[in-house]
Design a protein around this nucleic acid. Structure first.
Length: 279
DNA sequence: AATGCTACCTGGTCGC
DNA sequence: TGCGACCAGGTAGCAT
């Protein structure tokens, strides 16, 4: 779930629910994440007001009135639920509960690959989790020349390069395949082979695919705040991801002949593409 | 320096 | 229905 569009969606939902609220109580029910939640997490943050909720790369950042910020990464399986008030029952893997004056946020993370920590707001920019992030896909400084120079000489496949958060942040394994499909570029080509024109296509496709996904996420927002609500998935929008042997979007092929969408493994992760459209 | 492999976890699915 | 093998949207850290 948590690539940029999902984090953006979660961020907006949480911002709408608790911006301006005061943190009344924090319960860390399990701090044994890949990286332990700091012992004093609750003590440091209780009593503060939530001034804003933002997204930085794939991180959600809550800025508080006491000069601290919460840095939250959803890992592979992190989900939030938002309630009006404290619930009697909890679900399996509900690890962090933040009770505020405006609502309750419950963080559920089966695999505990997420990161939940805090730092001073003024130190966010140089925080070890954030300081290596590349440009945001919607940052206007992301232009063809920037990508071209980053890709120059790279011997990794373009699909793998798109997953490198130090170049463009926010793209994960699903959208990397979707973006290359949209850009008509074969995932197996080396990043170093990309011409300026290809970089332009990649940037355009990235923004298009992510925008569409954010809009789809946004449309589930009204459901999200229901007590039993959880975020929708966007896989029905996918053109190639998880569609091995099926038709891609707007497919005009005879897939009996072409075999449809292909699946390969790159850097240990699945890639999906259309061998007809992508060159 | 760049690239690749492994580990961190639980749960769902598939084949037998 | 049970069991094991394998796969999963991320990324840090280590080896090569």
């Amino acid at each position: 779930m948590p690539e940029l569009p999902e984090v953006e969606t979660v961020k907006t939902a949480i911002d709408n629910a608790v911006r301006g609220a005061k943190i009344l109580r924090i319960e860390v029910r399990n701090q044994n994440f890949k990286e332990r939640i700091p012992e004093d997490f609750a003590d440091k943050l209780c009593g503060a007001k939530i001034e804003s909720v933002e997204r930085i790369a794939k991180y959600m950042v809550l800025k508080l009135s006491n000069g601290f910020s919460i840095i939250w990464h959803l890992g592979m399986s992190g989900r939030f639920r938002i309630y009006d008030k404290v619930q009697d029952t909890l679900e399996k893997h509900d690890h962090v509960i933040i009770e505020t004056s405006e609502g309750v946020i419950v963080y559920n993370d089966a695999r505990r690959f997420g990161v939940v920590t805090y730092c001073k707001i003024e130190e966010l920019g140089k925080h070890r989790l954030l300081d290596k992030a590349g440009l945001d896909p919607f940052d206007e400084r992301l232009e063809a020349r920037y990508l071209f120079e980053k890709f120059e000489g790279m011997r990794s496949p373009i699909k793998v390069a798109l997953l490198d958060q130090r170049i463009i942040n926010g793209i994960g394994n699903i959208y990397a395949s979707e973006i290359l499909f949209e850009a008509n570029i074969l995932p197996t080509k080396f990043a170093g082979e990309m011409k300026i024109k290809d970089c332009e296509k990649i940037i355009f496709a990235t923004r298009k695919v992510l925008t569409k996904a954010i809009e789809a996420g946004g449309s589930t927002l009204k459901d999200y705040q229901k007590p039993d609500g959880s975020l929708g998935y966007f896989q029905n929008l996918h053109c190639v991801y998880n569609k091995t042997g099926q038709q891609c979007c707007n497919c005009t092929c005879d897939i009996k002949k072409t075999g449809g969408v292909k699946k390969i493994v790159q850097a240990g992760r699945s890639t999906f593409y259309c061998p007809v459209k992508q060159k």
